[in-house]
Design a protein around this nucleic acid. Structure first.
Length: 464
RNA sequence: GGCCCCGUCGUCUAGCGGUUAGGAUCCAUGGUUUUCAUCCAUGUUACAGGAGUUCAAUUCUCCUCGGGGUCACCA
């Protein structure tokens, strides 16, 4: 069974890049009928917080990416890590190192001065003398000194490292006894049964160290997939400083999970020419083998397109439901259908849709200067008055649909022998305060006879 | 700097030795629309460079250049 994981450290909100690797892991597990588990890497007490962990979980819940089983918290596994540290010590695969921080710094400085690679010199690797007093030792693992470490990566192919280039006896437990990252990751992944690790390729160079741990402990290696980074417009790794990288900010901006997920799944992954993927399609078609090797630049143009696509293709009932999150409660059924049919074609986001709706519903209290100059020309009030009187005369029972209002407009046009623009322009500005906007017949059907009459009256009064 | 990864339109990408190098987005133009948006149509734009291998390289190899990542008692 395929078991994948997402393992964030709770130092802040869920990041767009993290979400993408999480999505990939989730999809790959689902595609294989496997499990997608969550592990919170909260060992850095100074930087971690419960709020951050909650924020991450909240984002997952908004997106509908549900994890399997209980969430693992690294902070609760100290005894497990201690056990393996002891095991390695007992087996002679790790040792206590009494080098002080000062001595280590000094070592590094001379190495740098000599233009050598900075690495631990193995001073205590085979030490059996009397340890220096007053130094709490760290635990170092005995890493291979020579030879090849091969990472068989599902995205990058075989990546070969030479031990002498990159390895030294790295620290697995600090002086205070706490274990370090590369050590616990390997243990957790192994113990949690993770057999397919999908993560950012910034971890590729950590992988040899983790392999050292796997091998020292006799664990079976998982399959690795290192996903290329998402870059900002400057071509650098996308970071929190780049703005709008908080996943929940996309909810506030009015994007749906569907649009965001569809957008992210296509960043670094593709399936032929297909652009639109339902969640089911993603689950059926995703394969980490098809992930690109190169980094991609974060650019939300396509997200906007996807978002408007999904809004246009979402049923009104569902849209109305979604809209309540943006403070818009649409009750009257027939008006709601007309309104949503009319406006969903022109909204990029749910927030747009809410704004557009509020705009139509509000009586204009001013008129765009350019628009009124163009629309409220000589004789405009005659046209509007004629329209208003016919509207007044009409039975409210006969005024429900856009076409009902359209017919009256047409009557006016025919009787007065004018072009459609002669009534359309002033009416538009009277109703909406500006030159652009949705179809007038729809607007009138939505706001109703009385409000239409009121807006016409206001416009004439203000512009005569 | 060492090590590692990457390099097709502005952007997301297809391509897996022979293609007029395809799609999407963006942009522009035209059509539809009383307006705007939608929608439809059309168009501009790409294989980083250089050597090889081959009858044939975007595709395979090497070099150069460019970009990125990583080098902790952070994760």
């Amino acid at each position: 069974m395929v078991v994948t994981r997402f393992a964030p450290s709770p130092t802040g909100y869920l990041h767009i890049g993290g979400l993408r690797t999480a999505l990939f892991s989730y999809l790959w597990a689902k595609k294989n009928g496997g499990k997608f588990v969550l592990r919170i890497e909260d060992t850095d007490k100074a930087r971690n917080s419960q709020e951050a962990a909650d924020a991450i979980l909240k984002a997952f819940s908004w997106l509908g990416l549900d994890h399997d089983g209980e969430i693992t918290y690294q902070s609760q596994r100290d005894d497990i890590y201690a056990k393996y540290i002891k095991q390695l010590l007992d087996e002679g695969k790790a040792y206590k190192c009494y080098m002080s921080k000062e001595e280590l710094t000094e070592l590094r400085e001379t190495q740098m001065a000599n233009k050598e690679r900075t690495k631990y010199n193995g001073k205590y690797r085979d030490f059996d003398g009397t340890p220096p007093a007053g130094v709490e030792p760290v635990i170092r693992i005995k890493a291979p000194v020579t030879g090849e470490i091969l990472v068989k990566d599902g995205v990058k192919g075989d990546v070969s490292f030479q031990a002498e280039d990159i390895l030294d006896d790295f620290v697995i437990a600090r002086a205070d006894g706490s274990p370090t990252y590369n050590f616990v990751v390997a243990i957790d992944d192994a113990l949690m049964g993770i057999n397919e690790v999908i993560r950012g390729d910034d971890h590729l160079s950590n992988t040899p160290k983790q392999i050292v741990v796997y091998e020292a402990l006799g664990f079976e290696l998982p399959k690795f997939y290192h996903v290329p980074m998402i870059h900002n417009s400057q071509g650098k790794k996308l970071s929190k400083r780049d703005g709008a990288t908080d996943v929940m900010a996309y909810k506030d901006m009015g994007y749906t999970p569907q649009a965001l997920l569809n957008f992210l799944v296509r960043l670094g992954w593709s399936h032929g020419d297909q652009e639109i993927f339902s969640m089911d399609e993603m689950k059926n078609l995703f394969n980490p083998q098809d992930i690109n090797k190169s980094a991609s630049i974060y650019n939300t143009e396509k997200l906007d397109w996807l978002s408007s696509h999904y809004i246009k293709n979402t049923k009104n009932d569902e849209l109305a439901q979604l809209l309540t999150e943006y403070g818009l409660v649409l009750t009257s059924h027939d008006k709601r259908e007309i309104l949503l049919d009319e406006l969903k074609e022109r909204a990029k986001t749910l927030k747009d849709l809410a704004d557009l709706t509020n705009e139509i519903l509000a009586t204009p209290h001013s008129y765009d200067a350019k628009a009124s100059k163009k629309a409220f020309k000589e004789g405009f009030s005659d046209v509007l008055n004629t329209f208003a009187s016919k509207l007044t005369a009409a039975d409210s029972e006969d005024l429900h649909l856009p076409v009902d209002y359209h017919n009256i407009m047409e009557t006016v046009v025919n009787e007065m022998e004018i072009g459609f623009g002669k009534i359309g322009q002033p009416l538009r500005v009277a109703l909406l305060g500006k030159m652009s906007g949705p179809g007038l017949d729809s607007v009138m059907a939505i706001i109703g006879k009385d409000e239409t009459l009121l807006r016409i009256k206001n416009a004439i009064a203000a512009n005569s």
